[in-house]
Design a binder for these strands. Structure first.
Lengths: 163, 163
DNA sequence: CAAACCATGTAAGCTGTTACATGATTTC
DNA sequence: GAAATCATGTAACAGCTTACATGGTTTG
């Protein structure tokens, strides 16, 4: 696979949250190459820059497997909206209701974008039945996280309207 | 409040996810001062560096209120575990079960740490009834997010053990 | 006797983002 | 005729982390 292809793959994935901008991808690939974790084959093209097609080496696979088995980290979550809410007593009732509405729309938008991404992505690997199960679980995780946030927003709305 | 106090306040808060290390806090306070959004009073101490006690200006409050009403962003979530899972078909059943268990323990640990933080934090402002409601909602958000992740882990375990 | 607390700050380095650069080909 | 696609890369900047620096007082 080329760096360019990886970039698009990362962009269309939601669990692979890395931005994958040019600056990082091409630099990282050079580092992996120097570390002997990948090799590349250069394919010349007329009127376009030469493709560098990368392949994992056995050492690369070993290194990957070691990372997969390394201690997983808890999710890293940043909800700037909660910081807005923590100061929201400065707002009138109407202003507060408006901001909550905006947040609801934004989260629902991202939720729909995620569902659409999943619908389009028919490329997910199905090399084994277990791999399919794993990928379905990953997708479910993304969706239920959004759903849980949307449920919370409903509770916010009823808690504030009662006041 | 001094920069030092803010640092501790941020560390003990979970919704205020900013790391708040020295380098950033003291630099940011100088910027706020230059922008006229805060003022400070210097209080000399013997055998300790002088305290700089900061206070928001009316301009600072206006600026804060503008930010609170600005378009909220959807949560920014990074779950590196999902990337580990997406490659986990390289593992044996036992290895996979082990990594899932480690993730479960890690998330449960963070969940307990969060609950403990909330239990200890009796300093949360209660200036109005509405502010109390808001702060309770923020706390509920943090906890239900963890709970939703833990529920998902249970589904992962049953989906994988059936295989 | 080591570690933590108080309270300010600086320095170095890594990660991430946005924008720029090339230049032909295809799509709207 | 403008914008996107292909495919590589560079440059400048912002954010974040870790470690260092000072130095007296208190806690384990």
């Amino acid at each position: 696979m080329t760096g360019y292809e990886m970039k698009h793959l990362i962009e269309n994935s939601s669990s692979m949250y890395w931005s994958g901008n040019n600056n990082q991808i091409y630099k990282a690939l050079v580092q992996l190459l120097n570390a002997g974790l990948v090799t590349n084959v250069i394919e010349q093209q007329e009127s376009l820059p030469a493709k560098k097609i990368y392949t994992v080496t056995p050492e690369g696979l070993t290194s990957l497997k070691a990372w997969i088995m390394s201690q997983p980290e808890a999710p890293d979550v940043k909800k700037s909206f909660l910081i807005q809410l923590s100061w929201a007593d400065l707002l009138t009732e109407d202003e507060l209701a408006q901001v909550v509405d905006q947040y609801e729309k934004e989260v629902e938008l991202q939720f729909m974008i995620e569902r659409e991404k999943q619908r389009r992505d028919k490329v997910s690997p199905n090399r084994t039945p277990r791999e399919k199960i794993l990928w379905d679980l990953i997708r479910e995780n993304m969706l239920t996280a959004y759903q849980s946030e949307i449920d919370w927003i409903q509770r916010v709305k009823s808690a504030l309207s009662i006041t």
